[in-house]
């Protein structure tokens, strides 16, 4: 397995407050990797550094063997990293199809080809029938899937998903898990998840990393990590979640 994303000793401080403290991990091509941790553990900050929104204070981030830390968000996306936002932000005034079309246009000059791609992605995410609807009028689960669709349409090698399960009902969560699994299997896209819903993490992730106060406290296979005493006391709590 080749390494797709390598994060080495990355740290970020905001006015003296250390949000992320020397985090390192490697994500292999085709892998689904989860980052978990309590609120304020620095997960989203880590994400934003990978996505180019924030510039790390130290450490390095490489994608496909190329340094990407400090690049702008659009440059990061053009290199093959798609992302969703924790608080969804579809283009509210545009139709569902046009939302995804904009993603598809990144690597397609031809309008017709981009539209075909957009419709194809919408089909995969159960949104095809809603393609003419204005994005602002979608329900939350639909918006979450729309964000995913938009990111997917940019043909990413790696998807960064920031709490895509949050706010979903259990059946909707299961559907999302199924969609992500199918995507990963069929297109080979790698996925980096930030997630609170352990059910989804356990079902999806091949590897996971636990952050606490910005520092990594455990990593490895999900079954092992959830038995780690440090993880249980700091995050999962006394009662077993699964």
């Amino acid at each position: 397995m080749t390494a797709l994303l390598v994060v080495e000793g990355v740290g970020k401080r905001f006015r003296g407050l250390t949000a992320v403290d020397r985090v390192s991990f490697t994500l292999a091509a085709g892998e689904i990797f989860a980052v978990i941790g309590p609120n304020g553990a620095g997960k989203t900050t880590l994400f934003n550094m990978i996505a180019g929104v924030l510039k790390p204070n130290d450490g390095a981030i490489s994608f496909c063997g190329e340094r990407i830390d400090g690049l702008t968000p659009d440059a990061v996306c053009r290199r093959g990293i798609g992302r969703t936002f924790q608080i969804v932000r579809p283009f509210p005034g545009l139709s569902v199809e046009d939302n995804v079309l904009i993603g598809a246009l990144l690597h397609r000059k031809d309008m017709a080809a981009a539209r075909r791609c957009a419709r194809d992605v919408l089909g995969r995410l159960d949104l095809y029938d809603k393609r003419g609807v204005q994005a602002a009028s979608l329900t939350l689960p639909d918006r979450k899937r729309l964000e995913l669709a938009r990111a997917l349409a940019t043909d990413p090698k790696l998807l960064l998903l920031d709490e895509v399960m949050a706010g979903l009902r259990p059946t909707e969560t299961d559907r999302m898990v199924e969609i992500l699994k199918t995507l990963n299997r069929e297109t080979g896209v790698s996925i980096l998840l930030i997630e609170h819903v352990m059910r989804a993490v356990m079902a999806l992730a091949g590897h996971m990393l636990v952050l606490h106060h910005g520092a990594p406290i455990a990593s490895g296979k999900p079954e092992e990590v959830v038995r780690d005493p440090a993880v249980i006391t700091s995050y999962l709590g006394q009662e077993t979640v699964i």
Partner: peptide, 24 residues
């Protein structure tokens, strides 16, 4: 109806989201 036209709409609607889709 051009690529640029859709990039403009994306920037108009949400600049951060537009950039996350690779739009400069």
């Amino acid at each position: 109806r051009s690529r640029l036209g859709y990039q403009w709409r994306a920037v108009r609607e949400d600049e951060a989201a537009a950039r996350a889709l690779g739009i400069d």
